[in-house]
Design a protein around this nucleic acid. Structure first.
Length: 596
RNA sequence: GGUCCUGUAGCUCAACUGGAUAGAGCAACUGCCUUCUAAGCAGUAGGUUCCAGGUUCGAGUCCUGGCAGGAUCACCA
């Protein structure tokens, strides 16, 4: 039982003993005391005045005295208006710290024996990854790690959109203009090379539309009848028919793209346990349509098209099969949901997909529940907001995207400049220095994208580079490096900072208590982050922890401290902070350096 | 137009799910490197939490109605 439960249980006891009133301890909640007041936990009296039949102040005094008398952990208390602020004893803090210090894997929960799949990234194979994909990938990867720490077995999956009209556009343009160009001959990364032809298609296509509208055609008709669009559509038909030349071309271009993606994923530091390809899954789901018709979940219209009626759930009717019997997006996603379950028997399934698809997933999940799927209640859409530029939305065809590879390279370059300016690479080999720039640049970028609540859309201004000071990745990395320096020194002077050495340090400083409180809170934050699928919870926590540690670092001496017990304790406390920072940053997919 | 999301300091974001005087970072200003890493610490200044009602001991948070921005409402994906 943790201290909060102990306190609320005792408060319930006080209500019984002092006011003859039974209260469920679980209905009582404590909150952290605001830092301008003395105390660790605060109990709000107002709701219980009917029970105490007294003023808030008098009730608080009575409850406080009762706690102090009955709980050795409670050292003092004070009452401000209707708030009972509870202070805990140094021995409580010391005991708590020793528990944390000796625990292995603080912040890791026991296995739940349950599987969850996290699908993220899910790129199109017609263009390189951009800033929006970075948010998606970092989110998906971090959420996977957080769920794993929380005790799930996690399967990271990537559903690659490798077919369809948009892929055919790149193929048509390449066929027309490519002249056998390859990544080797052009010096372009495979995904960038294919992306180039996607842009070329669009430019030519627009030109054709303009020519047609100028010759008097309606715009809608021009879009349909432009020669290259017709070619792309023909290409799609040939692809679906399995035409050998088309398939060869498709395989060649996609192969280049995958090589490019692999490089980008490696740089980002993300990976996958399972790839799904839409070229394999796009025909799935038709059997589910038949099943839904039988179960009365779907109905057929006169023209033969099949629909789900969700009007009772506050939505409208949604098409699940075209009149000609071909699939739509929804059909395929129903099939893929079943496939994931068949492959892994997952109990939860998380889709990391932008909020523009909120409606689609709401419908999909409702349908799967109505069909009685065993995993139906474990479906989650981790819906994140778009990353906007000051000029508005990114458009890949209009060249206003922030390319993922470019941005990562820029971040590393900025880290290099910054570090060299500060003259912090003394004693680094060339390789070590480059590795550090990578760690810092990517740390800054990942933290920047993960610290914001996923569902909020965020602004990225390419003119203003991502910060390295304040609430940033490098600030937290720096705190870790500082502690690493302390631990190196401790090793150098053979300082023993095992718990036995702490004996004799009886009156902790406020800054030390706060740190222990924060360290203890880590597992709560992992729990919360897992429940809310929000790495931002961890990011915010780490910033607060690092901030608190730097305060401690500035205020209290370590090696110039004369009492051995105090010195050992402060090194131990520092070590625990470093361990927690490393663990938490690890959950965000961010590496921390030993020196910087 | 219907539905969903968002609106907090000049800017970027918090606020433990209804609690105290709404907090950080950046930018600005003032201090602190002869002591463990100054990518740091301490401080000053900055607010009608979009607006109007309501619910109650108490509302940035919940409800209703507006306003603003975004997304979505294809036999596209």
């Amino acid at each position: 039982m943790d201290i909060q439960q102990t306190i609320t249980k005792t408060i319930a006891g006080a209500f019984r003993d002092l006011f003859d009133h039974a209260v469920d301890p679980d209905s009582l909640a404590l909150q952290p005391t605001r830092k301008e007041f003395e105390g660790t936990y605060t109990f709000v009296i107002f709701p219980f005045l009917k029970i105490t039949k007294s003023t808030p102040e008098a009730s608080g005094e009575k409850l406080g005295a009762y706690l102090q008398k009955n709980l050795p952990e409670v050292s003092t208390f004070n009452v401000v208006k209707g708030f009972l602020n509870i202070s805990l004893s140094s021995s409580y803090w010391m005991n708590l710290f020793q528990q944390l210090y000796e625990a292995k894997d603080h912040g890791r929960f026991p296995s739940k024996g349950k599987k969850v799949m996290v699908e993220y990234s899910s790129p199109n194979t017609n263009k390189p990854l951009h800033l929006g994909h970075l948010r998606n990938n970092f989110l998906g990867f971090a959420v996977s790690l957080i769920l794993e720490a929380y005790g799930y077995e996690v399967i990271k999956s990537n559903l690659v959109n490798d077919r369809g009209i948009h892929i055919c556009k790149s193929m048509v343009a390449y066929e027309k203009l490519g002249k056998g160009e390859t990544p080797e001959s052009s010096g372009l990364k495979g995904d960038h090379l294919v992306g180039k032809y996607y842009v070329l298609f669009d430019q030519e296509y627009k030109k054709q539309i303009r020519a047609l509208t100028e010759s008097g055609l309606e715009e809608a008709a021009a879009k349909k009848s432009a020669p290259w669009m017709k070619e792309a559509q023909d290409m799609l038909v040939r692809w679906e028919a399995g035409d050998a030349a088309t398939i060869d071309l498709w395989k060649k271009l996609n192969g280049w793209v995958y090589q490019g993606f692999e490089e980008t994923y490696r740089k980002m530091g993300v990976d996958f346990d399972q790839y799904y390809y839409e070229s394999d899954t796009y025909l799935l789901g038709k059997d589910i349509v038949a099943e839904g018709l039988k179960k009365g979940v779907f109905f057929k219209k006169e023209n033969g098209s099949v629909w789900a009626d969700l009007s009772e759930e506050g939505l409208d009717e949604k098409l699940v099969l075209r009149a000609d019997g071909t699939s739509v997006y929804m059909t395929q996603d129903m099939g893929t949901a079943d496939l994931k379950y068949k492959d892994h028997h997952i109990e939860k399934s998380v889709y990391v997909v932008g909020n523009e698809q909120d409606y689609h997933f709401e419908v999909l999940f409702k349908i799967m529940r109505k069909l009685g799927r065993p995993y139906g209640n474990g479906l989650y859409h981790l819906s994140y907001g778009m990353v906007d530029l000051p000029t508005g939305k990114m458009k890949s065809r209009e060249g206003t995207v922030v390319d993922a590879d470019d941005l990562m390279a820029e971040m590393v370059a900025t880290a290099r400049e910054h570090t060299q300016e500060l003259g912090k690479i003394e004693g680094f080999s060339q390789e070590e220095a480059e590795a550090l720039y990578e760690i810092l640049g990517l740390g800054a970028l990942k933290y920047f994208l993960l610290k914001v609540d996923p569902k909020k859309r965020m602004l990225f201004n390419p003119q203003e580079s991502i910060e390295f000071q304040g609430n940033t990745g490098p600030f937290i990395q720096y705190t870790h490096a500082r502690i690493a320096a302390i631990l190196r020194k401790a090793a150098q002077i053979d300082l023993d900072y095992s718990p036995a050495q702490f004996q004799g340090y009886a009156t902790l400083e406020k800054a030390e208590e706060s740190l222990i409180y924060q360290l203890d809170d880590y597992s709560n934050k992992v729990h919360l982050a897992a429940e809310e699928l929000s790495p931002a919870v961890i990011a915010q926590y780490l910033f607060d922890l690092a901030k608190e540690y730097n305060r401690f670092y500035a205020e209290l001496p370590i090696f110039s401290e004369t009492k051995a017990a105090v010195q050992a304790f402060r090194v131990g406390l520092s070590a625990q902070v470093a361990k927690t920072i490393k663990s938490g940053m690890g959950l965000l997919g961010i590496v921390v350096p030993q020196k910087m």
